[in-house]
Amino acid sequence: MLEASHLHFCISNKAIVKQASFRVEAGELVALLGPNGAGKSTLFKLLSGEAVCKHGEVLYNGKNIQGYKSSQLASIRAVMPQSSQLSFPFTAKEVVEMGLTMARSSSVTQIVEEVMQLTQTFAFRNAQYHHLSGGEKQRVQLARVLTQIWEKQPYTRYLLLDEPTSSMDIAQQQHVLKIVKGLKDRNIGILAILHDLNLAASYADRVILFKNGNLFAQGITAEVMTSQHLGEVFDHPIQVITNKERGSLMIHPVPQLNKKLFNYHTA
């Protein structure tokens, strides 16, 4: 279990994360949602171990994150940041292989090929990473992150994703979330920051709503993603429609065409 308890984090005396306690269990996909500047990315850094929290603690499988060495941490959690800049001309395959930097696995070639097939990156494995499109780059990065936790292990692992589909088209987005959902069977718990509320509604088991550094609401997707909650968190009227045939939610931000953008004084 990945557990965050009473996290409170300041940057130059301004509280970015005020109060956050939640859990990600093995085999569940949790979506972290909230408006820009809510503190999601900071929270993400606290969970990945990149930033250290003085107040509160982050526990991986019951052990404080600071008790892990970076190499140990790498074997129980993989992290995909929003974007990564590559400094030298590596090929797509070389980037994916980096996922196994600290691994002592004997089946490197097999893992890399399997994951690249799955993420549909195998076709351009020998292409320069720099020459790929935004969506392709993102899939290569996903493949890199997946190789890190691909080999089955007796202990629970975790995957942290920060907007993994931001540069992808609709088909790719669905494909990626299907892959991520498939990880649940491999004893992996997933926490994903998502911008697309519909993606979250169709794939997440649980949802955490974050606003102004505070945990606004958390719970089972259908219970948390209500018009009232979402409208309050995003400061915009949002309609949540239940599709009765499929039993799924549809999230619809209501356009406010009548509202003036600005009071013109010069008109």
Binding site: K45, S48, G49, E50, K69, S70, S71, Q72, L73, A74, S75, A78, V79, P81, S84, Q85, L86, S87, F88, F90, E94, V95, M98, G99, T101, M102, R144, Q148
Partner: peptide, 18 residues
Amino acid sequence: QLNALAIGESEAFHLGVS
């Protein structure tokens, strides 16, 4: 380690590089 650093310092840390 230097290969991993090419993706970025935080990424290298995520990959287990000290």
